[in-house]
């Protein structure tokens, strides 16, 4: 059933699926999204239905990515090249952005999102390397 042959790649894809599903569920639920935003240092009084609508939209994007990771697990690895490349670039941009936010004057309340984004970038790098997708590399 699983077409990815490398065990470490399988583990990474499964971990990323769980991580994205976790963030997806976190953002789609109003209560959990509120708790998450509060932990970033925002007062709960400033969170309204429109904010929760936006986080729910974001949550669905995370859930779709979780489904995409499951799809990569079930397809031959070379068919996932474009998706992995997009995730690698996307996670790099995201992690740089969150590092800059964390380093900012009001951004240091909670480092977990920054750490999670860096972790995703590192894991995507490992996945990309192990799959032989980096241009110029022969496995």
């Amino acid at each position: 059933m699983i077409k990815v042959e490398d065990t470490i790649s399988r583990v990474i894809i499964c971990f990323l699926t769980l991580l994205f599903l976790f963030y997806g569920f976190m953002f789609t639920g109003a209560e959990s999204a509120t708790a998450f935003i509060e932990r970033l240092g925002v007062d709960s009084g400033n969170i309204d239905a429109n904010h929760l609508q936006m986080t729910a939209n974001l949550g669905w994007i995370y859930i779709v990515f979780a489904i995409a990771f499951v799809a990569t697990l079930l397809a031959p690895i070379e068919q996932s090249t474009v998706f992995f490349r997009m995730m690698l670039v996307g996670s790099f941009i995201n992690s740089i952005r969150l590092i800059i936010i964390y380093m900012g004057a009001d951004g240091g309340a909670n480092p977990v999102p920054m750490i999670a984004s860096i972790l995703v970038f590192v894991l995507m790098n490992i996945l990309y390397n192990r799959s032989g997708m980096r241009i110029g590399v022969t496995m």
Partner: peptide, 15 residues
């Protein structure tokens, strides 16, 4: 099992 584990993680953060 994956969905319930993710929900458990969300619950443990929220409450």
């Amino acid at each position: 099992a994956t969905m319930f584990l993710a929900a458990l993680m969300v619950g443990s953060v929220t409450n």
